[in-house]
């Protein structure tokens, strides 16, 4: 009973805050609503007993992604009014398409039933082991290939970011650590005997 109640509360808050993300006037508010939605989703995962995923969601999405969003939104100074200019113009057709699609999906969901063979194809028995371990097995053993592939995707993203943004500007002084370290005393220091009153001249 309490379980069901909690589900409906969290789910409702998730949906409402997701809606607010796209309808809030202030983009900073949007991001905050997004964070709220993430939190509630994490709670939903918790209700399902997937505590590891719930925690990851909080750490990664709230702690990293959403905060990144917040920075970007603040830096970009988006003019919402300008973005909304065409809103009313496109509203009717947009609404029509959205409602049609939504209705169709609802229709499909109404007839939801688990496929008879679905149960047989589940990979991990959640009940046997702690779900962190179950996830670990899946990711690092069964889905090792996917894990590696995901690694490649990240590598590509990294390369792409570097390629598109890294510039070597001429005239910028850079620290050459190896040269600094490799420098010897003889290269840097010259001992000159000076007599009093004459100064140093090479």
């Amino acid at each position: 009973m309490i379980h069901a109640l909690a589900f409906y509360v969290f789910a409702a808050v998730t949906v409402v805050s997701a809606f607010m993300v796209i309808s809030a006037r202030n983009p900073v508010h949007s991001v905050l609503y997004l964070i709220l939605a993430f939190f509630n989703s994490a709670a939903l995962f918790l209700l399902m007993g997937a505590e590891f995923i719930a925690m990851i969601l909080v750490i990664v999405y709230v702690g990293a992604v959403a905060v990144l969003f917040l920075f970007v939104v603040m830096m970009l100074d988006i003019n919402i009014a300008e973005l909304r200019q065409g809103f009313l113009k496109y509203l009717p057709i947009g609404a029509a398409v959205g409602i049609a699609l939504f209705a169709e999906i609802l229709l499909a969901l109404g007839a939801w039933s688990v496929s008879p063979v679905a149960a047989g194809s589940l990979r991990a028995k959640v009940s046997d082991v702690p779900n962190t371990e179950a996830l670990g097995r899946l990711i690092y053993t069964d889905y090792m290939f996917l894990f590696q592939a995901a690694g490649m995707v990240l590598l590509i993203a990294m390369i792409g970011a570097i390629v598109l943004t890294l510039r070597t500007r001429p005239g910028v002084r850079r620290q050459k650590i190896a040269a600094q370290i490799g420098r010897r005393r003889e290269e840097a220091v010259v001992l000159v005997k000076t007599r009093v009153g004459e100064g140093v001249s090479s």
Binding site: Y90, G94, V97, A100, L101, E104
Partner: peptide, 13 residues
């Protein structure tokens, strides 16, 4: 992007 959405909607419909 909207054209894509319309496309999907039309195909589903």
């Amino acid at each position: 992007a909207f054209a894509m959405l319309i496309g999907v909607a039309l195909l589903v419909t």
